[in-house]
Deep mutational scan, measured.
Amino acid sequence: ELREAFRLYDKEGNGYISTDVMREILAELDETLSSEDLDAMIDEIDADGSGTVDFEEFMGVMT
C-alpha cells in the first residue's frame, strides 16, 4: 500500500520524489504545520541531503 502511494508521487518512475513534493504531502497531511516545521521535517527525512526522498525514506515517514 505504501509503495502504491509512493508511485503516485513518483510520476516519472525514477525511484524518488523531490523534497518539494514531500513537503506538499506533509502539508496536506497536517495543515497546521508551519513552514519552519516543514523545513525541519524535510531535513530529517532527507538525511543524506540529496534533495530527494527515496522509498525507504518515504516509508520511514509514513510508518
Rank of each mutant, 00 (worst) to 15 (best):
E57I: 12
M41L: 13
L8H: 12
A47L: 10
E1A: 14
E4Q: 07
F6A: 02
M59H: 06
K11R: 10
D39E: 07
D54W: 10
E36S: 11
E36Y: 10
I42W: 02
T19I: 14
E1T: 14
D48A: 08
A5T: 14
V21Y: 09
E24Q: 15
R7K: 13
L2H: 05
M62W: 11
G51Q: 05
T32Q: 08
I25C: 04
E56T: 10
D20V: 14
G51N: 06
E24S: 14
E28F: 10
E1R: 14
R23E: 00
F6T: 02
L33P: 01
R7Q: 12
G51W: 03
L2S: 03
Y16H: 05
V53Q: 00
L33K: 05
D54C: 08
R3H: 10
G15P: 02
E24L: 15
V21P: 00
I42Q: 01
T52G: 05
S18Y: 06
D48C: 07
I42Y: 01
I25A: 04
D10C: 13
L8N: 11
V53L: 08
F58P: 00
V21F: 07
N14R: 13
T63I: 13
A40N: 10
D20Y: 09
F55A: 03
S35L: 09
Y16F: 11
G15N: 04
S50N: 09
E44W: 14
L26C: 02
G60D: 09
E36A: 12
G51V: 01
S50T: 11
D10R: 00
M62F: 12
Y16E: 02
D20E: 14
F55P: 01
L29R: 13
R23F: 01
F55R: 02
A40F: 10
A27W: 10
E36R: 11
G51R: 07
S34T: 13
E57L: 11
D39K: 08
L2P: 04
M22S: 00
M62H: 04
E56Y: 13
G49I: 03
E44D: 10
T32G: 09
E57R: 15
E44M: 13
V61E: 02
S35T: 11
E12R: 04
L33D: 01
N14E: 04
A47S: 10
E31S: 14
G13T: 03
G60P: 03
S35M: 11
D43Q: 14
E44L: 14
V21N: 10
M22R: 00
K11V: 13
M22I: 08
D37V: 09
G15Y: 03
S34W: 04
T19M: 11
D46W: 03
T63K: 12
D43L: 14
G60N: 13
K11S: 10
T19W: 07
E28R: 15
T52S: 07
V61T: 06
D43A: 14
T63D: 06
D10M: 06
I45A: 09
A47H: 12
L2A: 06
N14Q: 08
F55H: 02
R3C: 15
S50R: 09
I25H: 01
A27Y: 11
I45L: 10
D54V: 06
G60C: 14
G13D: 07
A27I: 11
R3F: 13
L2W: 15
E56K: 10
I25F: 08
V61R: 05
I17G: 00
N14W: 07
E28V: 10
V61L: 13
D30N: 13
L8I: 11
L38W: 03
A27G: 08
E56C: 11
E31D: 12
M59N: 04
G49Y: 05
D20L: 15
T19D: 02
S50W: 04
I17M: 03
T32C: 09
I17Y: 01
A5N: 05
V53C: 04
L38K: 02
I17L: 07
D39R: 07
Y9C: 12
D39P: 01
Y16N: 03
E57P: 02
L2M: 10
E44A: 13
M41D: 01
V61M: 11
T32V: 04
E36G: 08
G49F: 05
D48Y: 06
I45H: 03
D20P: 05
E56N: 11
T63A: 12
E12L: 09
F6V: 03
M22Y: 02
A40S: 10
T32K: 10
S50L: 06
L29G: 05
M22W: 05
T52Q: 09
A27M: 13
E36I: 08
G51Y: 03
D46M: 03
D20G: 11
D20H: 13
S35K: 13
E36K: 11
E57T: 15
F55L: 09
D54Y: 12
E4Y: 07
D54T: 15
M62S: 02
E56A: 10
E36H: 09
E56S: 10
L8G: 10
L8Q: 13
S35H: 10
G15A: 03
A40D: 07
E4H: 07
V21A: 14
A40M: 10
D43W: 14
S35N: 12
M22A: 04
F55G: 01
E56D: 11
G13E: 05
M59T: 08
E44K: 13
D30L: 12
G15W: 04
I45Y: 05
V53E: 00
F55E: 06
T63V: 11
G51S: 04
E57S: 15
G49K: 12
E28L: 14
E28A: 15
